[in-house]
């Protein structure tokens, strides 16, 4: 497996190497550089630029325009209604619930998923027997498609024929229907989210741990630091960039969460498991209110942009 991936990488690695001989060391003039990069620019930039414009920039601008219309998606938008769509969004209890759920997902990601991923990463990154196997097992859920994971867990939670039913039967308890209970559905969804994504964050931390020079830990050990001290004073500070990255992915993942929720609960019961994107889908697209849906999309876009830039400024200030 490893050999295969190495051989797969080798042509790329060869390309990245500087050309042989002294030619590479010679300073090249601007003209020469343009001469060499020009054809690449002409060949590769327009398709990418065109695709990016057509598939990203234009839809974003269009959504911004539609958000000011009452439009079903048929014909062209004609009923301009100003900010009313945005005003409406705030009046939906489901939107507040969605926003709250997104924050809840972020909180759980930070308070449960992150420490769990970090803890497991420190365990399976060391040289204990079976570490590779465990690493693979923990990472497996992440490989699964979101929809597939949602369907599997829907079956697990099913109170009629699912695992929950079987377990309740063994224990002699009435079968629980967690996904049908507005008070418990979100908790059940959170369990699936943590199960699905902690493996990914664990991998991030393993990569981060790999990057730490063992000499530092050895030096700390020689200086008499115990395991906990070494972790807190050496490992953790050196892992900060990875933790920042993990937090970033958690937040963005929460804001994008959709395909796990749909097979599990579709945002129900009673909108208790809506996220911003499922709200957009069920209150915009499914109701043929493209204008309203666009307005939700704009709100989501603004949240993402504010977070992405704000977080970059705050967390990566010193990087």
């Amino acid at each position: 497996m490893e050999a295969q991936s190495l051989s797969g990488l080798s042509p790329g690695a060869a390309l990245a190497l500087p050309p042989a001989g002294g030619q590479a060391r010679r300073r090249r003039s601007l003209g020469q550089r343009l001469w060499s990069t020009g054809p690449v620019l002409v060949l590769f930039l327009p398709p990418a630029l065109l695709l990016f414009t057509a598939l990203v920039v234009v839809p974003i601008l269009d959504a911004g325009r539609y958000s000011f219309f009452d439009w079903s998606g048929y014909g062209v938008p004609t009923r301009f209604i100003g900010w009313r769509n945005f005003d409406l969004i705030w009046r939906y209890p489901a939107f507040h619930q969605a926003l709250l759920n997104n924050l809840l997902i972020i909180a759980v990601s930070l308070c449960i998923q992150l420490p769990m991923a970090l803890g497991l990463a420190s365990l399976v990154a060391s040289r204990i027997r079976g570490a590779v196997t465990f690493r693979m097992i923990f990472f497996l859920p992440y490989i699964l498609a979101d929809v597939a994971a949602g369907l599997i867990w829907r079956f697990m939670y099913d109170g009629d024929y699912g695992l929950a039913a079987a377990m309740a039967h063994v224990l002699g308890l009435p079968a629980p229907y967690v996904l049908a209970d507005p008070h418990w559905a979100m908790t059940a969804v959170l369990v699936v989210i943590v199960w699905k994504y902690f493996g990914f964050h664990m991998m991030l931390f393993i990569a981060g741990l790999q990057g730490i020079d063992p000499a530092l830990l050895d030096a700390a050990a020689i200086d008499g630091a115990n395991r906990l001290q070494r972790f807190r004073r050496v490992t953790l500070p050196l892992l900060t960039p990875t933790i920042r990255l993990s937090v970033f992915f958690s937040v963005i993942g929460s804001l994008q969460l959709f395909d796990l929720i749909m097979p599990l609960t579709k945002g129900g019961p009673e909108d208790s498991t809506q996220t911003l994107v499922t709200f957009l889908y069920s209150f915009g697209i499914m109701r043929m209110r493209v204008g309203f849906g666009s307005a939700v999309g704009v709100v989501l876009f603004v949240i993402c942009v504010v977070f992405a830039f704000g977080y970059k400024r705050l967390a990566f200030r010193d990087v």
Binding site: E2, S5, L9, P11, G12, A13, L15, A16, A125, V132, R135, F139, M203, L204, I206, A207, Q210
Partner: peptide, 11 residues
């Protein structure tokens, strides 16, 4: 440690 390629060159 055989982790995921964190800086895989995508080509």
């Amino acid at each position: 440690i055989n982790a995921i390629p964190t800086s895989a060159r995508l080509g």
